[in-house]
């Protein structure tokens, strides 16, 4: 099944556990359609390079998914409907080496723990 790299950007004024609820909700959507979540990374509350609908900062989360293509359409439709998710990006990737992405190590922004 194809591999996808999905970045979810949520607006700044949601709490960490609200964010966890949202992300687990989306993970369930994938797992119910017998897809797999290889890794999940939280890049923290980063400041944006430009304002995205009035947000100066945003919560970044990255998921590596392994599902069928038509399931991704349904998944993205739900992402579009959700009002806390201000932007998302899904990329098809060939291989996944399991290593942590560079964003996690160079986390200079203050982490919202």
């Amino acid at each position: 099944m194809p591999l996808y790299e999905n970045v979810i950007i949520c607006r700044q004024d949601i709490t960490k556990n609200q964010l966890d609820v949202i992300i687990s909700e989306f993970k369930n959507i994938i797992e119910n359609d017998n897809g797999k979540i290889l890794t999940e990374e939280y890049w923290g509350l980063k400041s944006l390079a430009y304002e995205i609908n009035k947000n100066k900062k945003a919560h970044y989360t990255m998921l590596i998914l392994e599902t069928l293509p038509e399931k991704i359409e349904e998944y993205e439709r739900k992402l579009r409907l959700h009002e806390d998710v201000i932007r998302f990006m899904t990329i098809k990737i060939k291989t996944f080496d399991g290593k942590q992405s560079i964003m996690v190590e160079t986390n200079d922004d203050e982490n919202y723990k």
Partner: peptide, 11 residues
């Protein structure tokens, strides 16, 4: 262009 879209780099 991808980095710009997700707000990591400015336009």
């Amino acid at each position: 262009k991808r980095a710009r879209y997700i707000g990591l780099m400015p336009y």
